[in-house]
């Protein structure tokens, strides 16, 4: 076919380039603007445990740890519940009712994070404080509070994507299995679950990405205490004291303060870069598991 000038083609390519350019610019800008801190701290930006910006000390390890702890704990809490619930909706629930449940779940996935934050501030914080009384906590603002809140927030995502993955298993295979005498639980356990493992993993990773990148709700309940590096890494201790995650640091007023000071600003951009790389990595792994689940 002969190709002549087409306004529509030009339009499509230029606006697509704008979208792609914005994302590329994000990476490039964050790398460039964070250069000073990499020169100043080197790798100890990632491993250092002290963040005192007045002393020009920038160690992000406690925040990276805080991010990991809250996100993984949240996933640990949400995954069994979400997948269990998804098995129920996809395998046992009547199809018509299933669509209703699905609408409800999708609605709840859209509840803004600040609403979760508000409920966290006014309820969850006190509940966690009461729950932790035997450990004598300083307040209800702990990494655990953030994790529980995140778990509730990612629950709809886990549920709805896991349900999609399970529904993706062909009906004909279920029929065949039922014909062989398996009951519906056995079909779920031996046919649907094993076949949708990739989809389920993709769902969990996507939820993990959400949890890692969530800022506002965690900001309100996590205590935002800097330099909380635990004495023992493998213990409950970091979970039940207040801490800081990368996102809560970025959302704090320090971001506004930092701009006038090149090194401090570079440190903030470095944090954003670390977060972006972590989340983009997880998103891409999730995408490679299943090339279908962009919501």
């Amino acid at each position: 076919m002969q190709r002549r000038f087409s306004f529509t083609r030009l339009f499509s390519y230029s606006f697509s380039a704008l979208a792609a350019g914005t994302v590329v610019a994000m990476f490039v800008l964050l790398i460039l603007q964070s250069l000073p801190v990499w020169q100043h701290e080197g790798l100890s930006f990632l491993t250092g445990t002290k963040w005192f910006y007045r002393q020009q000390q920038f160690g992000a390890a406690p925040m990276i740890l805080g991010t990991m702890i809250t996100a993984f704990t949240a996933l640990l809490l949400a995954a069994p519940l979400g997948i269990g619930a998804a098995i129920f909706t996809s395998e046992f629930l009547h199809p018509r009712l299933r669509l209703t449940v699905k609408v409800v779940i999708e609605l709840l996935a859209g509840v803004p994070s600040v609403i979760y934050g508000l409920l966290g501030v006014l309820f969850l914080r006190n509940w966690i404080y009461d729950l932790l009384t035997p450990f004598d906590p300083l307040s209800g603002d702990t990494l655990l509070t953030g994790a529980v809140l995140l778990a509730v927030m990612i629950l709809p995502t886990v549920m709805t994507l896991a349900d999609d993955a399970l529904r993706g298993v062909p009906v004909i295979q279920r029929h065949a299995a039922r014909g062989l005498g398996l009951n519906s639980s056995e079909v779920a356990l031996h046919i649907a679950l094993p076949q949708s493992v990739r989809g389920l993993l993709a769902a969990l990773l996507l939820a993990l990405g959400r949890a890692l990148g969530e800022a506002i709700a965690v900001f309100l309940v996590v205590g935002r205490q800097d330099n909380q590096w635990p004495y023992r890494l493998l213990s409950m201790q970091p979970l039940i004291q207040s801490g800081q995650t990368i996102t809560t640091k970025l959302a704090s007023s320090e971001t506004n303060i930092a701009y006038g000071y090149p090194l401090h600003w570079a440190a903030i951009c470095g944090l954003a870069l670390v977060l972006m790389v972590m989340v983009a990595g997880i998103t891409l792994i999730s995408a490679s598991f299943s090339r279908r689940h962009v919501p």
């Binding site: 994302v23 610019a25 994000m26 800008l29 964050l30 996507l206 990405g209 959400r210 890692l212 990148g213 969530e214 800022a215 996102t247 970025l250 959302a251 971001t255 903030i268 951009c269 954003a272 977060l275 972006m276 989340v279 983009a280 997880i282 998103t283 999730s286 962009v294 919501p295």
Partner: peptide, 11 residues
């Protein structure tokens, strides 16, 4: 889709 929204804010 996976981009943390706070990173957008910093950008």
């Amino acid at each position: 889709n996976g981009m943390p929204s706070i990173v957008c804010g910093i950008f």
